[in-house]
Amino acid sequence: MDWQRIIINALEASVGLQAVVFALAAIGLNVHFGYTGLLNFGQSGFLAVAAYGLAVTVATFDLPFWLGIVFGLLGAVVLALLLGIPTLRLRADYLAIVTIAAAEIIRLTVRSVTFEGTFGGSDGRQGFAGGFYDLNPYPKRQYNIGEFGFNERQMWILTVGWVLVALSCLIVFLLMRSPWGRVLKAIREDEDAVRSLGKNVYSYKMQSLIIGGVLGSLGGFVYALGQASIQPDIFGTDTTFFAYTILILGGAARVASPVVGAIVFWMLLSLTDNVLNEAIDAGYISSSVINNTQVGQFRFMLVGLLLMLLMIFRPQGIFGDRREIALDAR
């Protein structure tokens, strides 16, 4: 077994594209769920709207790159409004059902043959990232420390991605220490009490839904640009639940938790994938037990189990303080 390779892979995964994308998605969820108590089960829909907004604008309609970003962001805001208007006055579980349904509606629509001309069907869209890589300041070469490193394209998207993560964290930090953040946290605890104190709860929940959605949509952009292509099935419900696992892993309602969660999560997945694959290749595990294609399935089982165990035994996450989390309040 090549332990050096395994460890380098794990390190690369911990700062890689997936970690950035899911950190952003989880930062958005943290605003929704961690701070406001909104059960948004359709975060993948926000990522999809942003990614497709960009891809369709550039690849289908041949418009400039920055316009694609604008449309993607607008899409996220409109989605938040569409989801929020019918459900934010209702009980929490309705929002969960409506958001997960909406995310599926988006996925099924963009993958349909009927709209293949616009969204590219199940093959998705590519050829829209050129405008982004034209801005790349990194000269073409490999950027390595020892064996650990990335090429200039990866360097560019990761730089932009981590800057976005840092900015998002800063915004969340500034907002949550303010009276605005206090209202959100109070809504999470008991919205009737907040209403009785003269706050327009509906409006705050809507603001939270929009801000969290837009932060999550940044993950959609980063993913689309990093892969330079998108397929509809990336934006399934599992993506949302990965983000939840990451959020709970790091500890909900803490500014840095989605980032910590994402780093740890992808490092763990990379480790298990690589160790299993190497073990299979080296013959330590018989391929009749588990073969290389099944390693992917094993990864999902692991995530499911991790989510269960965390929620049962450590709902406050790795670093959280049990007294502060809202999860066991109801």
Binding site: W180, R182, K185, A186, E189, V194, L197, I325, A326
Partner: peptide, 23 residues
């Protein structure tokens, strides 16, 4: 309906109306 995961003083501050920082 005490907001149990907020501190007592935060509960109180929440009550004030017309807060600029709530925008």
């Amino acid at each position: 309906k005490a907001l149990s995961k907020l501190t007592v003083i935060e509960n109180m501050r929440l009550g004030a109306t017309g807060q600029r920082g709530e925008n």
